[in-house]
Design a protein around this nucleic acid. Structure first.
Length: 439
DNA sequence: TCTGGGGTCCTAGGACCC
DNA sequence: TCTGGGGTCCTAGGACCC
C-alpha cells in the first residue's frame, strides 16, 4: 500500500488514484462456522435456525439446492429435513462472533482501511492499488489467506462505488467460473453484469421498491442505472437516487471505518412458549433490560428514553391479538441497571393486559448522552444512586468473566419464557470444556 | 403446536412559533 | 369572523440492511 502512495505523490501528477472499494463476504457464514468443527458435514446440507429454532437463517450450498429459502419456518420443512438428512443447528452467536473476528483480523492485516459492515462482510478501500498490482490477483490472495488461516470461504467484489462492489460480489457468488472474485473496474463489465441482474438484487432495493420499479418497466440493475435521476427522486426518494448514481459509477457512499456511535439499543426475544402472566413477562423484560444496560455501558452512553413492548403471536388468528408499546422519558439519562429495572417494571404493569397469550416482548433504549454531559433543568431534583458507576463496573467485570455470575432478583423468578435452542452446537472456541479434541 | 433479532435512514404530518 | 407563509422540531411509520 505504501508503494501505491509513493508512486503517485500528491502535488505531482494531477491524476487521482482510481477509487476502488472491495466487498469481502463470507459464504453461507453461519452454516460454514458450524461445519468448521464438523468436517463430517462437509458435503451435507446444513441449516442454521434463528432464535427459538424458528426460521432458517443460513443454508449451506446443498441446503440451498434443496430449495430451502432464507427465512423459511423450520416446522414447514420438517419432511424435507428428514428426507435429506439435513443438519439443523440452533444459532450459536458466540461462535459466529468469534470466527468473524478472526476473519476481520486477517483482512485487516492486508488492507489499509477496513469497514466491518456486518458479522460476515466488510468493505475495504483499495484505491490506488490497481496501479501497483492486479486487483484480481490481490483479491485471490486475500481469499486464500482467509481460507487457510480461518477455514472460511469468501467472495470478493471490487468496483469504484460501494453499490457496484456489492453487485460485483453478487456476481462472484452467483457465477462459479469467476473463481469467487469479480473486478468491476471497467464500465463495460459493469454494464454487462447489470444487464443480467434483476433490480431486486441491487443493494438498497428491497421487495416493495422492486415491485414498484418493475411496474414502471425497470426490471434490471442496468435499467435503474439508466433511469432519469429526477424521476427516480420524485417518484421514490433521495435514497434510491443515490443508489442509481452509485450504479453509474458515481461514488456517494464513503468508507465508514470508524464505527459510529449507536442511536438505539434493542433487546427482544420471542418466548419458547406463550406466557400469560404479568409475572413471567416482567421477569423476561427484566432480563432484557439488564442485557440492554450492559450494551449501553459498553457503548459508554447514558439513555434518557426507555421503551417496552409486548405482543401476542400475529400468525395465530385463533387467539385474540394484542400488541402495544409504551415509552418513559427519564428526567436524567442513566446507565444504571437498577434505575432502568424500576422503569421497565412500571412500564410492564402499564402495558400488560390479562387474557392474552404473549409470544414476544422487548425493550429499547434511545436518546443517548455521554455521561455527565446532560444539562438538567434548573429545578430538577437529582439524586443519583450512590456509587452507581463503581457498582456497575464490578457487575460488568464479573459477568464478562462468566456470563450470569451476578444477576438481579427480578430476572429469574420465572423462566417459562426462555427460548428454545434444542440443536445448539458446543461453544468450540469460547468455552474450555467445549474445545474439540483431536486425538 | 412450531414463523428471528438488531439496526439505520427518510418522509409525512402535526404542533408550535413568528 | 375573516385571513398567510414559512420555519423548526418532534414523532410515527415505512423502507431498507444483514
Amino acid at each position: 500500500m505504501a508503494c501505491a502512495e509513493a508512486s503517485n505523490p500528491s502535488g505531482g501528477s494531477t491524476k487521482k488514484p482510481a477509487q476502488c472499494f472491495a466487498l469481502i463476504d463470507c459464504n453461507n457464514f453461519y452454516a460454514s462456522c458450524e461445519r468448521l468443527f464438523r468436517p463430517d458435514l462437509k458435503y451435507k446440507p446444513v441449516i442454521v435456525a434463528s432464535n427459538n429454532d424458528g426460521c432458517a437463517v443460513a443454508r449451506s450450498a446443498e441446503a440451498k439446492a434443496l430449495g430451502i429459502k432464507m427465512g423459511t419456518p423450520i416446522f414447514k420443512i420438517e419432511d424435507l429435513i428428514r428426507q435429506h438428512d439435513v443438519q439443523v443447528f440452533s444459532s450459536n452467536y458466540a461462535l459466529y462472533a468469534d470466527i468473524s473476528n478472526r476473519v476481520m483480523t486477517t483482512i485487516e492485516g492486508m488492507v489499509p482501511k477496513l469497514e466491518v459492515y456486518s458479522i460476515d462482510e466488510a468493505f475495504a478501500d483499495l484505491s490506488g492499488l490497481s496501479s501497483v498490482v492486479s486487483l484480481e490477483a490481490f483479491a485471490s490472495e486475500l481469499r486464500d489467506k482467509i481460507e487457510r488461516w480461518v477455514g472460511i470461504r469468501t467472495c470478493v467484489g471490487m468496483a469504484p462505488t460501494k453499490t457496484l462492489a456489492k453487485l460485483a460480489n453478487y456476481g462472484a457468488k452467483k457465477y462459479a467460473k469467476t473463481g469467487g472474485v469479480v473486478d468491476l473496474t471497467s464500465e463495460t463489465r459493469q454494464r454487462k453484469l447489470m444487464a443480467i441482474t434483476p433490480v431486486d438484487e441491487v443493494w438498497g432495493v428491497g421487495r416493495k421498491l422492486s415491485k414498484r420499479l418493475n411496474a414502471m418497466g425497470i426490471g434490471t440493475a442496468l435499467q435503474l442505472a439508466d433511469a432519469d435521476l429526477k424521476t427516480v427522486r420524485k417518484t421514490f426518494s433521495v435514497v434510491l437516487e443515490r443508489t442509481a448514481r452509485e450504479l453509474r459509477g458515481e461514488s456517494c457512499l464513503a468508507m465508514d471505518d470508524i464505527a459510529p456511535t449507536k442511536q438505539q439499543i434493542v433487546v427482544s426475544r420471542s418466548f419458547g412458549s406463550p406466557v400469560e402472566t404479568l409475572d413471567s413477562i416482567e421477569s423476561a423484560v427484566a432480563s432484557f433490560i439488564v442485557r440492554a444496560a450492559e450494551k449501553l455501558r459498553y457503548e459508554g452512553q447514558c439513555a434518557k428514553q426507555v421503551t417496552v413492548f409486548m405482543r401476542t403471536n400475529p400468525f395465530n388468528q385463533t387467539h385474540a391479538q394484542y400488541s402495544n408499546t409504551t415509552t418513559s422519558t427519564l428526567s436524567l439519562p442513566t446507565q444504571d441497571t437498577r434505575e432502568l429495572l424500576g422503569v421497565t417494571q412500571a412500564l410492564c404493569q402499564r402495558l400488560f393486559r390479562p387474557g392474552y397469550r404473549y409470544t414476544k416482548a422487548g425493550v429499547m433504549l434511545t436518546d443517548f448522552y455521554q455521561p455527565g454531559v446532560f444539562q438538567p433543568s434548573l429545578f430538577a431534583v437529582h439524586e443519583p444512586k450512590p456509587k452507581s458507576q463503581e457498582l456497575m463496573a464490578v457487575l460488568d467485570a464479573l459477568n464478562q468473566q462468566q456470563t450470569g455470575t451476578l444477576f438481579f432478583a427480578s430476572q429469574k423468578t420465572k423462566t417459562d419464557w426462555h427460548m428454545k435452542r434444542e440443536r445448539l452446537s458446543p461453544a468450540y472456541t469460547t468455552r474450555w470444556a467445549d474445545i474439540p479434541k483431536a486425538r
